[in-house]
Amino acid sequence: MAMNPEHDAPAGHDEARRTFLKQSSLLTALAFVPAPVVDAAAANLDEKVAGAIEKVPLKLEVNGKKYKLAVEPRTTLLDLLREELNLTGTKKGCDYGQCGACTVHVDGQRVNSCLSFAVMHDGRKVTTIEGLADGDKLHPMQEAFVKHDGFQCGYCTPGQIMSAVACVREGHAGSDAEIREYMSGNICRCGAYSNIVAAIQEVKNGGQKV
């Protein structure tokens, strides 16, 4: 469903899957009695109504790439990233704001991407775990997680790292207790918490640009 990225389509987005997605949304569309439809794609959404079955235009910058998309309003930011832009580094844990696995940055602020609709972020800049490294050079927080064994199964890790970077940038990494409090939105079922705190402390005290 991702349409017209201004750059290349994300790697690995295979054609068959794209066709399937198109067909499946067409089927839902046919099964649905359309509400009064006004042409939303034609203009901005300021005071116009997008028909329920219509896709809404969405401009988004993700990891430095600009996209011009058309999405169903009910697509969450998380599903857009994973299923349409193929950025599967961001994980879906609970899908209800309870685990933090889906944490990304929107305009530099950490948020749970599962609890908002993608269209609400029109014009914003999104950073996911894929956008954190500088080319081949890992972000200092990624290096610190590796060094301190900040993960076991790794499922929560992208969310932990995105949250950890924000935690340091916000100035909420003053002590172990403060780090634990401000990282409490990221659940780790493997219980790697103390190593995560150690990794954050190292980055915070290391003085590198985070």
Partner: peptide, 15 residues
């Protein structure tokens, strides 16, 4: 999830 229409007014009155 059910489908829905989406609007994003720039003025409180319109909202």
């Amino acid at each position: 999830m059910n489908q829905f229409q989406y609007v994003r007014p720039s003025k409180a009155q319109a909202a």
